[in-house]
Write a protein that binds this DNA or RNA. Structure first.
Lengths: 148, 148
DNA sequence: TTCAATAATGATAACAATTATCATTATTAT
DNA sequence: ATAATAATGATAATTGTTATCATTATTGAA
């Protein structure tokens, strides 16, 4: 007799945690795009015992669950956005400020159609997109022109 | 008598180096988007004494001089592209592969006009752009569907 | 061509953001 | 209440990249 045991790695059941709830709530209630560090310092005020690892851990979990958006910060720290409504991000290469770029719904739809079309003609099937535009913001451009 | 000495930090004159030339030539002659590490290992074959710091240093210099493109790799390593003709990059979130997305010139122009328009209506003056699209590539999507 | 002046190099230390480890605590289903 | 186990917080480890610094290479002028 041959007994075959199949052990399947099942996704662990998620348990509630105060910390995760706080992190999510905080991101939903603010308009900016804090780094993990910034969020840590802010939440520490309400819950002094919270650890930085918990912040990172939960930010990752929430990102995977599409409850929040992770904005790749490159050399700078990553930032997190509680607003999951589709929009672009604009990062000023000079001052490192991050701006939301919301499009009217029809424009966004147009963009997505366009992107889909690009995808069809190239190698990729684009499912989720996360567009960051780099450039120089108005303030910094102004400053540059004043120097000249 | 008051003597005022104004010391102005002048941009240092750039001197030639074999290493920088090699790095640039290598990037211009390849189609992929190597990381600094990969480039280092490749160039070591031709010039065993080259150091990793030299690679990083020159990649930065060349990027600043717009001779090459630096592609922000986020948690992964940055990648470098010898092709400065405007195009997008598509990164597969699953396999981490990076694909070029070239647009016909008129499409790219259209995109830029569009972007400019977005910019006007929002906070930013977009000068240089560096668009990375994240998603799932055809191969990985196929694999996913096979599992289901 | 030789000689400063100084930019570039290569080895390696330092750094900063993030992730892994692990003993302890909290949540959950029974 | 209990047992199973997910989550926590402290901190060590990791990783990609940058800074430091003594040495070497390039350059323009004598």
């Amino acid at each position: 007799m041959i007994i075959v045991i199949i052990i399947e790695r099942v996704k662990a059941m998620q348990k509630y945690s105060k910390q995760r709830e706080m992190i999510l709530k905080s991101l939903k209630n603010r308009e900016d795009h804090p780094t993990a560090e910034k969020l840590y310092l802010d939440l520490k005020k309400e819950m002094p015992e919270i650890g930085i690892a918990t912040i990172y851990r939960n930010l990752q979990i929430l990102t995977e669950q599409n409850e929040i958006l992770k904005i790749n910060g490159g050399k700078e720290s990553d930032r997190f956005d509680g607003n999951t409504k589709k929009h672009f991000h604009f990062v000023c290469e000079k001052c490192k400020n991050l701006y939301d770029v919301f499009l009217e719904d029809d424009k966004m739809e147009q963009w997505e159609k366009w992107l889909e079309n690009i995808a069809k003609n190239t190698i990729a099937d684009i499912q989720t997109t996360n567009i960051t535009i780099n450039g120089t913001c108005k303030n910094c451009k102004k400053k540059e022109e004043e120097i000249k």
